[in-house]
Design a protein around this nucleic acid. Structure first.
Lengths: 132, 132
DNA sequence: CGGCGGTTCTTTACACGGCAAAGTATAGAC
DNA sequence: GTCTATACTTTGCCGTGTAAAGAACCGCCG
């Protein structure tokens, strides 16, 4: 018996995941941040584009967002005669990304054990209830 | 020496994370799915609202999306004289959510070890490069 | 030295989607 | 019958992801 009547529920917000910062919780930016966290020396535009499979405009826009949020900074220079921009995590960026990842880990720990268990036959819906 | 010249890079798309299904990679729906995966018997609207701290309209909309994607199904009935709708994961929903979570786990494993290591002094930017 | 072409980003425009406020429906209380 | 409460739905706005077009910079060939 799953003692789940209705008044004993102190678990409001149990799955609200407020630590999932919207700036970071976005597929493309997640890839950019992961790329950068593995490269303390930074990465240039073209490399990020290749690693994350993003279009130019797309990558540019996401890098703007990350810079405005103070998570990433940029350095202009040139290599092989071509202008290049080197992007690196800020200290704050690293810290906030770590916090985000720890919340993600929470999600996985909340859900994956239940989800990957062999799909037990779902309990029946109470009699008299109609689909859709 | 980080043998990272320019031609040996077979890691295109290394951080593209294409397995992060957009329907699932959304804070609110992630919470809903996690709520449901821990409740094989399903959950009613009000319970989901409380668990995920969502407004009525917001929750309704996200549940629509999840149903249209075939991840969740709904059963109408009544309890205590009030109409209620019970939401449950479909088998497909459970499977796709598991796949999504495994990709998330990848992200965490890619990034968290690097991110949480004590912020080593970042290597200097090459001479001649300018901020911003 | 003057276009031509190739990089390296930026800007613009659109369309999708999250969100909350207002609306609908059903049921019990009085 | 009307009022209040619950349980969702619908509507509309606005923020944002995305790609197509644009700008800046450089090397090269004639």
């Amino acid at each position: 018996m799953t003692r789940r009547r209705k008044a004993d529920e102190a678990d409001a917000g149990r799955y609200a995941y407020e630590g999932l910062d919207r700036v970071l919780h976005e597929k493309a930016r997640l890839g950019i941040m992961t790329s950068l966290v593995t490269r303390p020396e930074g990465a240039v535009f073209t490399e990020l584009k290749r690693l994350c499979l993003l279009t130019d405009g797309n990558l540019s826009r996401h890098l703007d967002v990350l810079q405005e949020a103070g998570l990433v900074d940029a350095w202009r220079g040139s290599e092989g005669g071509r202008p290049q921009t080197l992007y690196r995590l800020t200290a704050d960026g690293r810290a906030r990304f770590t916090a985000y990842l720890e919340e993600l880990e929470h999600v996985v720990r909340d859900a994956l054990p239940k989800a990957s268990r062999r799909p037990e036959r779902s309990p029946d819906v109470p009699p008299g209830w109609q689909p859709a």
